[in-house]
Computed example of a mutant assay.
Amino acid sequence: MPLDRGTADRDMKIAMIEVIVVAIPFAGGSKSAESAWGKKNASRADSLLVKVTTEGGVIGWGEAFGFTAIPAVKAAIEEVIAPLCIGVSALNIGSLMLDVQKRLHIFGRSGAIMFGISAIDIALWDILGKATGQPVHRLLGGAAVSELACYASLVRYTDPQLVVENVNRALADGFSHLKLHEVTVDAVREARKAAGDSVDITLDVNCPWTVREALDMSAKLRPFNLRWLEEPIWPPENFDGLARMRREGGIPIAAGENASTLVEFQQMLSAGAVDFVQPSPAKMGGISELQKVFALAAASATVVMVHTFYDGPGLLASVHASAALGSKDSLVEWRYFDLEAQLYGDAVLPKNGMITVPHGPGLGYDPDADVVRNFEVRS
């Protein structure tokens, strides 16, 4: 039911911000290699959820990019960010988030502080949608589609045979778009052989190479017809190097998950560094900043492919934004894990490689209380 304006000031002030760490084990026995997101042979997926409650009892859910950085992000939210938000209207998202960013900029414009701000921002959009009876995508202008295509984002396996096994599983599950996180030519070659020529394959290598090394690798990778090569260069903010890769490498370039501010995205786009820009809402300021990146990208005719290597509120934020602000080419990243449980049960599981855009108020779904309770990590 839409919020009565007369009760807004009284009931919509932020009363409580809770940080909840959830660790869901992998159900399958496949082993991952060590990569940017976690440890070698990781046995569980760790998520950091944020629950924001107003004085009137409206609850919003957010998510911060965490993984092995969760202790730092949790501390940043509880000890630094949350005290600045308590008592402020949850409906004043833009002004509150800008004030928090300004007051905390001295501690860094990326990492734990920005991850925590991102989670709270997403939760506030969830609250705004629930308070006004609208899904987030309608608050962003309305969805032009009812479902979006997904790509199955595989963890790094290194062993080409394991790569092939998981490519085949993803194809059997109905995905026609895949992302690999491999860093060897052999693994990519075997994935392309298994998938055939009609399947889109992207490759995220997580910033391992110099520009020269990346150019040499791109020459070896060109025969595999990658839709894009993601973050090939160290450091990730070397936008001139990425632009050179885009000019000379012969493979479309994607980047942006490690950019934390609108200025970085502006610099990236101005440099002509990417064919696909990849803001990560659980890392770079939440929905408030994400919508601005869509506007920047539109001005430079660059496709936005939102980074969503998570499966909680951060994923839902990406779906709403892509449905409302994206193009016909937009894809949703689906973290292709064998988890014992999903935060939303079966509600958001892709079917035949497609994910349904939620139409309930706010983000559309709250995390399943039983899943949160059963897999919560209590310190």
Rank of each mutant, 00 (worst) to 15 (best):
M1E: 13
L3E: 13
L3C: 12
R5I: 13
A8P: 01
M12T: 08
K13V: 14
V21P: 14
I24G: 12
P25E: 12
A36T: 00
W37I: 14
S43H: 05
D46C: 03
D46N: 03
V50N: 04
V50C: 08
T53F: 03
T53I: 12
T54Y: 10
T54D: 00
V58E: 02
W61E: 07
G62W: 13
A64D: 07
F65K: 08
T68L: 03
I70V: 07
I70G: 05
P71H: 10
P71E: 08
K74S: 06
A75W: 06
I81M: 11
L84W: 08
L84N: 10
G87E: 15
V88A: 15
N92E: 15
I93T: 05
I93Y: 14
L96C: 14
L96E: 15
L98Y: 10
L98H: 14
V100H: 15
V100R: 15
R103W: 15
G111Y: 10
I113K: 08
I113T: 14
G116K: 10
A119L: 02
I120R: 06
I122E: 01
A123F: 08
A123G: 04
L124P: 09
A131W: 14
G133K: 04
G133C: 08
Q134M: 15
P135S: 05
V136L: 12
H137D: 01
L139I: 03
S146A: 09
E147Y: 01
L154S: 14
D159S: 13
Q161I: 11
N166L: 05
V167T: 11
V167H: 11
R169L: 13
F175M: 02
L178A: 03
K179E: 00
V183K: 07
D186C: 07
V188I: 11
R192M: 07
V199D: 06
D200F: 08
W209A: 04
T210C: 09
E213S: 11
A214T: 00
S218D: 05
L221Q: 04
R222T: 09
F224R: 00
W228C: 09
I233D: 12
W234K: 11
P236K: 11
L242C: 09
L242V: 02
L242H: 07
R246A: 13
R246H: 11
G249K: 06
G250N: 03
E257V: 01
N258E: 06
A259G: 03
A259M: 12
Q266F: 07
M268R: 00
A271I: 02
D275S: 06
F276C: 00
P279D: 04
G285N: 07
I287D: 04
K292A: 12
K292M: 05
L296N: 11
A297T: 07
A301R: 13
A301H: 15
T302M: 14
H307V: 09
T308P: 02
Y310R: 01
P313I: 00
P313Y: 01
A324P: 10
A324W: 01
G326S: 03
S327N: 03
S327L: 01
S327P: 03
S327V: 00
R335F: 14
L349Y: 02
M354E: 04
M354N: 03
V357T: 06
P358R: 10
H359N: 14
D366G: 08
A369K: 04
D370M: 01
D370H: 00
D370N: 11
V371I: 14
E376I: 13
E376Q: 08
V377I: 15
